[in-house]
């Protein structure tokens, strides 16, 4: 019995679900590929197919858990446990990972999950949650364009988006059975990369409109106030000053350059 052959076979089995199918369907080809003696092949054939499947799922999940899980956890939670296991094995069959390459595969994995979302309403719901996680991952890694000059601006690495589910629900990711009933409720989310992770906040439509127009631009205090007034008037929930003050205190609006006075002086 050669430990080298056993370890090579087991490690390859752990990351290649197709290899276990091959082992039982065409054992001689596996014997040749892994240079197994007859008694080693006979031992390998004593492994149970369902144990190997559980093993492969376990390895894929643990590797995913290591770094990448926070970026896909909401999407995965919408699939049943058995579906998750099947999808993970299918994904790692297509995208073989000799080392842990999950971080490089997050978008590919979310796209893969979106393709697997089935059913009209449930599928739409799954795709919306997956779109949210994809947005969180992508938008916060996109670097800002260089902004020159002095004034007020939306802080760097801030993104806003709207989805067909309440923002709080998407952020918490604690999806209840009521989730299908809430699908279609427009939610607004702000994301900011803080250098280590993505901070997520639920915002309302007023702030969404304001920030959507403000991101990537430099404002004088007066220009900012004009923009905020237009939105505050439209929503009649707060004054322009209140809106700017709240964003300024939260660090979402920041001063850029040396000239700027506090917006409160406007």
């Amino acid at each position: 019995m050669s430990l080298q052959q056993i370890q090579s076979l087991m490690l390859n089995l752990s990351i290649k679900p197709q290899l276990s199918n091959q082992l039982f369907a065409d054992p001689s080809s596996v014997q040749a590929s892994y240079d197994l003696a007859d008694h080693e092949l006979q031992a390998a054939l004593q492994l149970q197919a369902r144990d190997l499947e559980a093993f492969q799922t376990h390895v894929a999940l643990k590797r995913l858990n290591r770094l990448a899980m926070p970026y896909v956890t909401r999407s995965l939670s919408l699939f049943s446990s058995s579906s998750r296991a099947r999808l993970l094995r299918e994904f790692v069959t297509i995208h073989e990972m000799k080392q842990n390459f999950w971080m490089q595969n997050i978008i590919t994995f979310l796209d893969f999950l979106a393709d697997k979302a089935t059913g009209d309403k449930h599928g739409d719901l799954q795709r919306e949650v997956i779109a949210f996680e994809k947005w969180v991952y992508e938008s916060c890694r996109a670097t800002d364009e260089e902004v020159s000059g002095t004034g007020l601006r939306v802080a760097s690495r801030v993104r806003v988006a709207t989805f067909q589910l309440p923002g709080e629900l998407l952020i918490d990711g604690k999806f209840q059975e009521a989730l299908p009933e809430l699908f279609g409720t427009q939610g607004f989310v702000l994301a900011q990369w803080n250098g280590a992770e993505v901070d997520l906040y639920e915002i309302d439509s007023g702030y969404y409109d304001f920030l959507k127009q403000g991101i990537g631009r430099m404002f004088t205090s007066q220009e900012l106030l004009v923009l905020a007034e237009g939105i505050a008037v439209r929503y009649e929930e707060r004054t322009a000053h209140e809106m700017i003050e709240e964003l300024y205190e939260a660090g979402i609006l920041v001063t850029h350059g040396k000239e700027v006075k506090s917006w409160l002086e406007v």
């Binding site: 370890q7 490690l11 376990h58 643990k62 590797r63 000799k98 842990n100």
Partner: peptide
């Protein structure tokens, strides 16, 4: 947990 260029995060029991 390692052989050649394959390395996984799981601990596989030895034979």
């Amino acid at each position: 947990s390692r052989v050649g260029d394959i390395e996984i995060e799981n601990f596989i029991a030895l034979p």
